[in-house]
């Protein structure tokens, strides 16, 4: 449950797992902003749910990192939710 950061060849891979919500967002953004990497891979493959607070963090990440790579959730419901909320999954 939560999130983790991994540096892979200069890229920062951010893994969001299980439920990502208001309880983690503050710490998460502080951690992320302290990281030096400027290229990000957002791995949501294990994400099972999110709330509005988490959504706006994702929104801000998308604005902050150009060339952001996204690995979409495996959970179909979460994908649909992200699509409804304006994230294009292609």
């Amino acid at each position: 449950m939560g999130y983790s950061f991994i540096n892979q060849e200069g890229y920062l891979v951010v893994q969001l797992q299980d439920l990502f919500n208001i309880t983690q967002v503050k710490e998460f953004t502080a951690d992320l902003c302290s990281r030096p990497e400027r290229h990000l891979v957002l791995d949501m493959s294990n994400l099972t749910g999110l709330d509005m607070a988490a959504l706006q963090v994702l929104w801000a990440i998308r604005q902050a990192y150009t060339g952001l790579e996204i690995i979409w959730p495996g959970d179909r419901q979460v994908v649909e939710r992200l699509e409804l909320l304006g994230f294009k999954t292609n």
Partner: peptide, 25 residues
């Protein structure tokens, strides 16, 4: 049925300037 949903992010500050516990959207 929701025909269209649009997130209004006009008030969203940059990631590292936002207080993630406040709602901007």
């Amino acid at each position: 049925q929701i025909i269209y949903l649009q997130i209004d992010d006009a008030g969203l500050p940059p990631l590292c300037e936002m207080d993630a516990e406040l709602c901007y959207l």
